[in-house]
């Protein structure tokens, strides 16, 4: 049951309707954007609920139970509540910066999905620089956090914003180097090609010894740091900075940050699944189901981290990135290059 066939069928119907080709393509693109947006909106709502359930069961609680079966409507209701809330803008904020920060956060979070293959042929645009695009566009998140931190005119928010900028910049570097080792091996930056190069399970990059698992772990750690989740949740460290960069936000603006956070969580997991776990490849089940299984498995791992680990301190965070992860990532890249170069070393 491949979704591609449905979309192909719809596209052909549209093309046969006699509209000019450019208009057909435009409609198809807009439709694709809406489909991705809708998918992510539902996914974010689901993840919020899931996170609450996972955390509750880790902590020997039940979590939401009253609204719907095991509380599945809870996040929908929460979202409606946040939509209705008064949007408070404190008097002392830098208005344009304060206003735009959540919008930038959400846009950056969604834009990454242009190049993520959701299944066989299910990709909005298979750019030849796909992975570079993702790395670039997700970095916009820092700008939004900095904007929120600076624009709020609040000391906690400022500290949170500064922390997040320092953190994301530091962890971006080992992450990119870790991804680079995959790119070296796949010989392409296109997400489609990277997935195609791991069609058998032993070809998944996580199983390509010795560089694969190391790159995966570096990516996982850096990804956790990028999404500001425990043990790297310093920008919003509740016990230190109260709420960090989003302390002054309320109503829908707060919801947008929240939304962006969970979309980012799924992004990191989806990229991990695509780069290291064979993307949508898998037997028996349709490709998009494999993609969802792998991504949500990664999401669960990240949630597990969050509810188990304590939080690092700022200096330890920096040290870990620059003194440990980055050198390791470079060594790993060299190993990957050598393996690629000496073909007999490859299987």
């Amino acid at each position: 049951m491949e979704l591609t066939n449905i979309f192909k069928f719809l596209y052909e119907k549209l093309a046969a309707s006699g509209l000019p080709q450019t208009l057909v393509d435009l409609i198809a693109l807009i439709a694709a954007a809406f489909i991705v947006f809708g998918f992510l909106a539902v996914m974010a709502l689901f993840l919020v609920w899931w996170e609450r359930k996972v955390s509750a069961h880790i902590q020997q609680r039940f979590g939401p139970m009253r609204t719907g079966w095991h509380g599945w409507i809870q996040t929908v209701v929460d979202m409606i509540k946040l939509l209705q809330k008064e949007d408070i803008t404190p008097a002392a904020v830098d208005r344009p910066v304060f206003y735009w920060a959540p919008i930038v956060a959400l846009t950056a979070a969604f834009a990454a999905y242009v190049v993520i293959p959701f299944g066989k042929g299910l990709i909005v645009a298979d750019l030849n620089i796909g992975i570079l695009f993702i790395v670039g566009i997700t970095t916009f998140t820092i700008i939004s956090l900095l904007m929120a931190g600076w624009g709020s005119n609040n000391k906690y928010a400022l500290l949170g914003g500064m922390r997040s900028a320092a953190q994301v910049v530091s962890y971006e570097v080992p992450m990119v180097v870790a991804i680079l080792s995959i790119v070296v091996f796949a010989g392409s930056m296109s997400m489609g090609d990277i997935v195609n190069s791991q069609s058998k399970i032993y070809e998944w990059y996580i199983f390509r010894l010795p560089f694969g698992p190391i790159a995966f772990i570096i990516y996982l750690i850096a990804g956790t740091a990028e999404t500001n989740r425990t043990p790297f949740d310093l920008p919003e460290a509740e016990q230190e900075l109260v709420a960090g960069f989003n302390i002054e936000y309320s109503g829908m603006k707060f919801a947008m940050f929240f939304f962006a956070e969970f979309v980012n969580l799924f992004t990191i997991s989806a990229i991990a699944a695509t780069l290291f776990l064979g993307g949508w490849q898998g037997p028996f089940l349709p490709s998009w189901i494999w993609f969802l299984i792998k991504s949500l498995g990664m999401v669960f791992v990240l949630m597990w981290f969050r509810w188990t680990f304590p939080r690092l301190r700022v200096d330890q965070l920096m040290e870990f990135s620059w003194k440990f992860l980055l050198p390791l990532a470079f060594v790993n890249l060299i190993i990957a290059g050598l393996m690629k170069y000496s073909k007999w070393f490859n299987w």
Binding site: I58, Q59, Q60, D233, A237, W307, T308, P310, R311
Partner: peptide
């Protein structure tokens, strides 16, 4: 204390 350091689940275990 563990909660202060970010390990949230400890709080609920201890209260249990």
């Amino acid at each position: 204390h563990a909660l202060d350091l970010g390990a949230m689940s400890m709080l609920l275990y201890a209260f249990r």
